[in-house]
Simulated scan of single mutants.
Amino acid sequence: MRFLDEDAVKNIALGAAVLGTGGGGDTAVGLFMALEEIRRNGPIELLDVQEVPSDALILPTSMMGAPAVSIEKLPSGRELDTVFDDMESALGKKAFATMPVEIGGGNALVPLILGARRKLPVVDADAMGRAFPEYQMVSFHLHGLGARIATFADERGNRATVHPIDGEWGERICRPLVDAMGANATVCDFPLNGEEVRRCAIPGTVTQAEAVGALISGTSQRTADTVVSDLVSALNGYLLIEGKIVDLKRHTKGGFTRGSMVIEGVERDSGRRVTVNFQNEFLVAKDEVNVLATTPDLITLVDRETARAVPTETLAYGMRVALLACPCHAQWRTNIGIKTTGPRYFGYGVDYEPVEQIARRLA
């Protein structure tokens, strides 16, 4: 157990944006809210998964919807308490802790806000090790755990409690609900006990995000030539291309931010073009000849000078960027993991191949 202060949370926000692979929601609003709660109530208690009692109730908290909407549709601040209270009331039990559903983007910060506000521990784990766009794309689903119950609230005061029979039905039922709430809502779902967290969650990801963020926040001590390479090394990843965005198509539909972009290489990548498709998160990267990386491996875009992540909702023509890819957690490389989050699930006509295998083959 340790405590997260303001500096730690700032680093978590930076790192979570990178691990978010373009999605997970903007970190700015969540960071401001988390810092304000820490100033009012003190630091946040962070627990290792081994410190959670087996019978303790853990309630993950997050946002669901299109990241592009979250920039303009700001939360009131009441929704998080509403969904948490509604979940405790429905279960008839008080929660021991909360945790992120995904460590990517703004969703990494939602449990920190609640933890600081309620003096509630946050578990150092999540259910993705990155960000994914759909409800069932969590490690709990891979282990056969049903969604069980989910509570929703929006900034207008609308509330809903849903009982999907599994994660796939959760996506079918809850996505239209969130769309009706303005394509963005606050959620408490997948209630777990401590034993289930240890068995199914991806451990240590809050600490991982903090470490990645600390590397990025220290860029003033390094040159622009080394900051991206340092980040690639820290992620055990690969640099796919450095260049500028020369084409961008993006729209919001069905509660998702969808589209594609083209990066034109510069300097040593001059003459190359890489196309990246996204649905909230970056899903497939390919050049004129080869697929370079696909989901569930992490594809992330960062500013070429600062290594700060660029999410899908803030992509703009002319940005100077670096496109990176790194291996996903081993749980996503199982048959059910690839079936749930692989490129064919999203309609791309390619099979999943580990990014390190692709890199060796194309070297």
Score class of each variant (00 low, 15 high):
1 M>Y: 12
8 A>V: 10
9 V>C: 06
10 K>I: 09
13 A>H: 04
15 G>F: 00
17 A>S: 15
23 G>D: 01
25 G>K: 00
27 T>C: 08
32 F>A: 15
34 A>N: 01
36 E>Q: 08
37 E>I: 10
41 N>A: 07
45 E>R: 15
50 Q>S: 12
52 V>Y: 00
55 D>W: 03
57 L>R: 06
58 I>W: 02
62 S>W: 11
63 M>V: 12
63 M>I: 12
69 V>P: 02
69 V>H: 06
75 P>A: 07
77 G>R: 01
85 D>G: 06
87 M>E: 04
88 E>R: 05
95 A>D: 06
96 F>Y: 09
97 A>T: 07
98 T>G: 05
101 V>G: 06
103 I>E: 14
108 A>T: 04
113 I>V: 06
114 L>I: 06
122 V>W: 08
124 D>V: 02
131 A>D: 12
135 Y>D: 01
136 Q>Y: 00
138 V>I: 13
140 F>S: 13
142 L>P: 06
143 H>C: 08
148 R>L: 10
148 R>H: 14
149 I>K: 02
155 E>A: 07
155 E>L: 03
156 R>D: 13
158 N>K: 14
161 T>W: 13
161 T>P: 05
164 P>I: 03
166 D>T: 10
169 W>P: 06
173 I>E: 02
175 R>T: 07
176 P>G: 06
178 V>R: 09
178 V>F: 10
179 D>T: 14
186 T>K: 07
187 V>D: 00
201 A>S: 08
202 I>A: 00
206 V>T: 08
208 Q>T: 14
210 E>V: 05
220 S>L: 13
224 A>R: 10
225 D>E: 05
225 D>W: 02
226 T>C: 05
232 V>E: 13
236 N>H: 11
241 I>R: 02
243 G>P: 08
246 V>Q: 15
247 D>P: 04
248 L>P: 03
254 G>V: 07
260 S>T: 13
261 M>Y: 08
264 E>A: 06
269 D>N: 10
270 S>E: 12
270 S>R: 11
273 R>Y: 00
276 V>M: 11
280 N>C: 08
280 N>A: 15
282 F>K: 12
285 A>V: 08
286 K>N: 07
289 V>L: 01
297 D>Q: 02
298 L>M: 11
299 I>M: 00
300 T>P: 13
300 T>Y: 03
303 D>G: 03
305 E>Y: 12
308 R>L: 04
310 V>C: 06
310 V>H: 00
313 E>C: 11
315 L>C: 07
317 Y>L: 14
318 G>V: 03
319 M>H: 08
323 L>V: 00
329 H>Y: 15
332 W>I: 04
339 K>Q: 12
343 P>R: 05
345 Y>C: 03
347 G>K: 09
347 G>P: 10
348 Y>S: 05
349 G>W: 04
351 D>G: 04
351 D>H: 07
351 D>E: 08
352 Y>I: 04
353 E>F: 09
355 V>N: 00
355 V>F: 03
359 A>G: 09
